[in-house]
Simulated scan of single mutants.
Amino acid sequence: MRFDLSSCARLGRGVLVASSLICVATAGAEAALIRHWALDEANLTDPGNNTYAGIIDSTGNSTGATLFGYNAGKDMAALGVVNVPGPTGFGTAYNFTEVPGENAGISGVFTNSLDAIPATGDFSLQVVMNSTNVAGNSNLFSNNNGQGGRAGLQTDASGNLFWFHNGGVNITTTANVTDGAWHMVGIAREGTRFDLFVDGVIVGTGDSAGAISTAQSWMIGRQRSSGGGYNGLVADVKIYDSYQLPGALVPEPAGIALLGLAAAAMAAGSRRGRMVS
């Protein structure tokens, strides 16, 4: 991890605090939103072709997103895995945690987008998430199918946020984001510089000119190949066309978030005649 006063100043985006450990910054100049999966769909009953059509990118791009790991023919809302309460201002969330007795619930959203993150250009990926899971590497957003240049934003077996890029820069942190509270996490690139952030704070940085693969579609909540599933909630995924460090997301108390998840599970269980646990 490399932080110093000169690197903070070079950001030029409303830096508030600079030290040898962290840089805290506000949102930067205007950036164009190029992908946005709000995950607010109300009902995702399988229409008969196993697509669960309706998971849209609200920017008008890549509208063919589909669910992975569903139990075909089931109503995702009735299972309590969509319309889970999200943080204030972000609508509802998807629950990517396995639903006992109902196959795997949602194990991922296939975005059908190869270039959601550009190979070499500037970008900012922002994910609003809430989890308590620390069971191995969990992919929030990934195109990893074993190809060169594969990449992904993940949490590790200790619940810490990290960025993996084959042939590029790997950034690990000690920023634990699996504490049951809502967090805005992400990765931003400007030139060859990558900054990993949590709630408006840069928690890791690195430099690489290596290209990010555009050969495989990106997944929300898992890697492109089998495995690496994320267990927890995701309320929002945004990608901008330039470096954009967002302000802090004010987390709700962990108890509120978890109560909302428990309420959704109880409601789903009562509709099926049993409790989801």
Score class of each variant (00 low, 15 high):
109 V>N: 12
125 L>P: 04
113 S>E: 13
142 S>L: 09
108 G>R: 10
101 G>A: 08
120 T>G: 01
88 T>P: 03
77 A>W: 03
85 P>A: 07
114 L>P: 02
160 N>E: 14
143 N>F: 00
119 A>M: 14
131 S>G: 06
124 S>N: 04
87 P>D: 00
129 M>Q: 02
142 S>V: 06
132 T>F: 03
80 G>A: 02
164 F>H: 11
132 T>Q: 03
126 Q>P: 01
169 V>G: 00
136 G>V: 12
154 Q>F: 10
132 T>H: 01
83 N>G: 10
105 G>W: 08
101 G>H: 06
111 T>P: 08
115 D>A: 07
109 V>K: 13
99 V>G: 00
89 G>K: 15
147 Q>D: 15
76 M>K: 15
113 S>L: 11
117 I>V: 07
128 V>F: 04
136 G>M: 11
133 N>T: 06
92 T>R: 09
116 A>Y: 09
141 F>G: 09
138 S>F: 01
112 N>T: 08
136 G>K: 15
168 G>V: 10
144 N>W: 02
109 V>G: 01
149 G>F: 02
80 G>M: 09
107 S>F: 05
163 W>P: 06
166 N>Y: 10
105 G>Q: 04
145 N>D: 15
79 L>Q: 03
124 S>R: 11
163 W>C: 07
140 L>Y: 00
115 D>E: 07
82 V>E: 03
79 L>M: 14
119 A>T: 13
98 E>H: 11
131 S>T: 15
157 A>E: 05
120 T>C: 07
107 S>I: 05
93 A>F: 08
150 R>T: 05
151 A>I: 05
92 T>L: 03
97 T>R: 14
167 G>S: 01
162 F>P: 02
104 A>H: 04
137 N>K: 08
167 G>R: 11
169 V>K: 07
131 S>C: 10
165 H>R: 10
104 A>M: 01
120 T>W: 03
135 A>I: 09
154 Q>H: 13
157 A>C: 09
82 V>Y: 06
154 Q>A: 04
79 L>C: 07
100 P>W: 12
119 A>Q: 13
151 A>E: 05
